[in-house]
Amino acid sequence: MSQHIEFMYDFCSPNAYLAHKALSGLKPRPKSGIVFQPVLLSLVFKLTNNQNPFQAYSENRQKTSYLTHDLHRFARRRGLSFHMSPHFPLNTKFAMRGASFAQGKSWESKYIDAVFDAIWVHGQKIDDLNVLTDVLQEHELPVRKIRDAMTDPEIKQRVKDETKAAVRRGVFGVPTLFWGSEMFFGKNSLGNLELEIKQSI
């Protein structure tokens, strides 16, 4: 039976951005591809008594300095564009509702790339709906439908329900990836994911 990678993400995470970019170079890449699952990181943290590592270690300059260095090193070694957002941390609830609405649509990947790049390449403040709208227009995405989805109570509830379902599977942060029943947390776990895929296909 063919398998796919499940990629659980929130646009607010620089590690999720880098993992998303690095996935394109994954070898072997499963034929059935990647399924993107948006989750609300703030709700994940609330449900798991967890928090943003930059906040958790805010008084430990050595730790926060290393975390920042690791982000830039990961990007540099893979030739990825990356800039720490000047607006970090961001509220991505509207962008994540848009991501939920985008699931399975022909422009889903385009939407994900556009929002991730807006934050982590161009430093845009996408929790400002006017800025986010400009990003959607720039990439010729269906702006009106996406904007409507961002305020749709059903979409809002769906994102929450899918986040809670992810937590029940063991998710405590992002990026989290699944290959079958195996869970891999963080951008630095991609090597182990590759090994797991090689052993199973």
Rank of each mutant, 00 (worst) to 15 (best):
Q3Y: 11
Y9Q: 06
Y9S: 05
S13I: 04
S13R: 03
S13V: 03
P14F: 01
P14Q: 03
A16P: 07
A19I: 02
K21M: 09
A22M: 15
L23N: 11
G25P: 04
G25H: 05
G25R: 10
P30S: 06
P30F: 01
S32H: 11
I34V: 15
Q37G: 09
P38S: 13
V39F: 04
L40Q: 05
S42R: 09
S42W: 01
S42T: 10
S42Q: 08
L43P: 00
V44F: 01
V44E: 01
F45Q: 02
L47W: 03
N49I: 11
N50H: 12
Q51N: 14
N52G: 12
N60I: 09
N60V: 10
Q62T: 11
T64H: 03
Y66F: 15
L67K: 07
T68V: 15
R76P: 00
R76L: 13
R76D: 14
R78S: 00
H83G: 15
S85H: 03
P86N: 09
H87A: 06
H87F: 12
F88Y: 15
N91F: 09
A95M: 08
M96Y: 00
M96E: 12
G98Q: 06
A99T: 08
A99N: 01
A102Q: 05
Q103S: 13
G104M: 12
S109V: 12
S109M: 13
Y111N: 04
I112T: 08
D113K: 10
D113I: 07
A118C: 06
A118G: 14
W120K: 09
V121M: 08
H122F: 12
G123T: 07
I126F: 04
D128N: 15
L132Q: 01
D134N: 14
D134Q: 15
E140C: 13
L141V: 11
P142R: 05
D148P: 00
T151D: 13
D152S: 07
D152E: 02
D152C: 06
I155M: 14
K156L: 10
K156V: 08
R158I: 10
K160M: 10
D161L: 04
E162I: 06
E162P: 06
K164Y: 00
K164A: 13
A165L: 04
G173V: 04
L177N: 02
W179S: 07
G180D: 09
G180P: 08
E182G: 00
E182T: 14
F184S: 04
G186A: 07
K187W: 03
K187C: 11
L190G: 06
G191L: 03
N192D: 13
N192V: 05
N192Q: 14
N192G: 13
E194F: 00
E194I: 00
I197H: 01
I197D: 02
S200A: 14
I201L: 14
I201D: 13
